[in-house]
Simulated assay, not measured.
Amino acid sequence: MSKGSRIAFFGSSLVSAYWNGAATYYRGIIRALHERGHHVTFYEPDAYERQQHRDMADPDWARVVVYSARGTEALERCLEEARDADVVVKASGVGVFDALLEARVLELRRSGNQVVFWDVDAPATLERMEKDPSDPFRALVPRYDHILTYGGGEPVVSAYRALGARECVPIYNALDPHTHHPVAADARFEGDLAFLGNRLPDREARVEAFFLKAASLLPGSRFLLGGSGWGDRALPENVKYLGHVYTQDHNALNCSARAVLNINRDSMARFGFSPATRVFEAAGAGACIITDAFKGVELFLEPGKEILVAHSGEEVAAHVRALSGPESRRIGQAALQRVLSEHTYAHRASKVEEVLGLPSTGTRERVA
Rank of each mutant, 00 (worst) to 15 (best):
S5G: 05
F9R: 10
F10G: 03
T24Y: 03
R27F: 11
R31T: 04
A32Y: 07
H38G: 08
H38I: 00
T41Y: 01
Y43K: 09
E44K: 12
E44C: 05
A47G: 05
A47P: 06
Q51Y: 10
Q52T: 13
A57H: 13
A62Y: 00
R63D: 15
Y67M: 10
R70M: 08
T72I: 12
A74K: 11
L79V: 07
E81I: 03
D84P: 04
D86Q: 09
A91M: 15
S92R: 06
G93P: 02
V94D: 07
D98E: 14
L100H: 14
L100Q: 14
E102D: 15
R104A: 14
R104C: 10
L106R: 00
L106M: 01
G112I: 04
N113Q: 02
V116I: 14
W118N: 01
D119R: 07
A122K: 01
R128I: 10
M129L: 12
K131N: 11
S134A: 15
A139V: 03
H146E: 13
L148E: 02
E154R: 14
E154H: 12
V157Q: 13
S158Y: 08
A165D: 02
E167F: 09
A174P: 10
D176F: 00
D176E: 10
H180E: 06
V183F: 10
V183L: 03
A184T: 06
A185T: 12
D186Q: 08
R188V: 08
E190S: 15
G191T: 09
L193M: 11
A194P: 04
A194E: 05
N198M: 05
N198G: 15
R199Y: 07
R199C: 06
P201W: 11
V207S: 01
F211V: 00
F211K: 03
A215S: 12
L218Y: 02
L224G: 09
L225D: 02
G226L: 08
G229V: 00
D232V: 08
N238I: 05
Y241K: 13
T247G: 11
H250R: 11
S256Y: 11
A259T: 07
A259H: 03
A259D: 03
V260M: 13
L261E: 07
N262H: 14
I263N: 02
R265F: 07
A269P: 09
R270G: 07
G272K: 01
T277A: 15
R278G: 11
A285N: 10
A287E: 07
A287R: 09
C288G: 03
I289G: 08
A293Q: 13
G296M: 02
G304E: 09
K305L: 13
H311Y: 11
S312R: 04
G313P: 06
E314I: 00
A317I: 00
A322Y: 01
L323G: 04
S328F: 03
S328D: 01
R330D: 09
Q333W: 02
L340V: 05
T344M: 05
T344W: 06
K351H: 15
E353L: 08
E353H: 01
E354I: 05
E354Q: 15
L356A: 06
S360Q: 02
T363D: 10
T363H: 14
E365F: 12
E365K: 14
A368I: 12
